[in-house]
Design a protein around this nucleic acid. Structure first.
Lengths: 133, 133
DNA sequence: CTTGACTCTCCCCTACAGGGGAGGCTTTAG
DNA sequence: CTAAAGCCTCCCCTGTAGGGGAGAGTCAAG
């Protein structure tokens, strides 16, 4: 099948499929004489895998590595497990940062409601946010 | 004072100060005849405000708006309160997404440890991540 | 007077996952 | 045969907060 059909069956855009070819996560089985990308039915499974991997937070560069292992004849499972373990740990850190930031915003918000705008020092731009000056 | 001194006193780079001028969050008081940026001492306070605002998650574009209000003679406090309220709400959403993602990664991780890599179906690339095929 | 440090503007580069469009073939239907 | 639709490559664009470096002008000390 050609790229347009694959894109439609996959529910995505032709641009995306071309992009996946370019970065090496979904290569066409072959090219026609005129240079058209030709895909087998398995391309649809491959596409779904890429999307599933993206959905759990993997980047296309990482997905490419997984696929390269598979295409090199290895089982990428160990690599994948490592990857998702690390990603989960990164997420823990990121979540903690965001929670801290949100809590600070909330307390800033509460504080701001008790402040009088007319007493805002112009040099500080806004006393709600204090540059520690 | 010239840009180099300001950058050093502020503990940042000349590039950053120039960038802040360009986007309008920290303009020099004047220019010398030769075109050098000249800053007053208040530039340091202004710089600290910008950094403090960034630290609570505001973007430079938003900070510029706050500063524009202040320089226009208004007290930007109301605007700032709105902004941080909205930002906090966005963070709530974002945090919830990340927590869900992390939990999914954790459960994927647990599941993966019970799977046998030798039974991994090559068509699916890796059975740890299931494209739903 | 010259050298070295400082400054200026202008332009390209980064990550991420594509989107938009130009200009030019190829294929398919009528 | 012709027109429309599909496909190709190539290049620029998005947002964020600057970083790197070129080429040229400026300022202070020796």
């Amino acid at each position: 099948m050609r790229i347009g059909e694959l894109a439609e069956r996959a529910g995505t855009s032709v641009k995306t499929i071309r992009y996946y070819d370019r970065i090496g996560v979904l290569r066409p089985a072959e090219r026609s004489e005129s240079g058209y990308r030709l895909y087998g039915v398995d391309a649809l499974d491959r596409y779904r895998f890429v999307r599933a991997a993206q959905a759990v937070g993997l980047r296309l560069g990482e997905i490419r590595e997984i696929i390269a292992l598979r295409d090199g004849g290895e089982t990428p499972c160990g690599f994948v497990v490592d990857l998702i373990g690390r990603r989960a740990a990164e997420l823990d850190v990121r979540i903690a940062e965001l929670v801290a930031l949100r809590d600070e915003l909330r307390s800033l918000d509460r504080r701001a409601r008790r402040l009088d705008p007319r007493r805002c020092d112009p040099r500080l731009v806004c006393h709600v946010i204090d540059g520690g000056a």
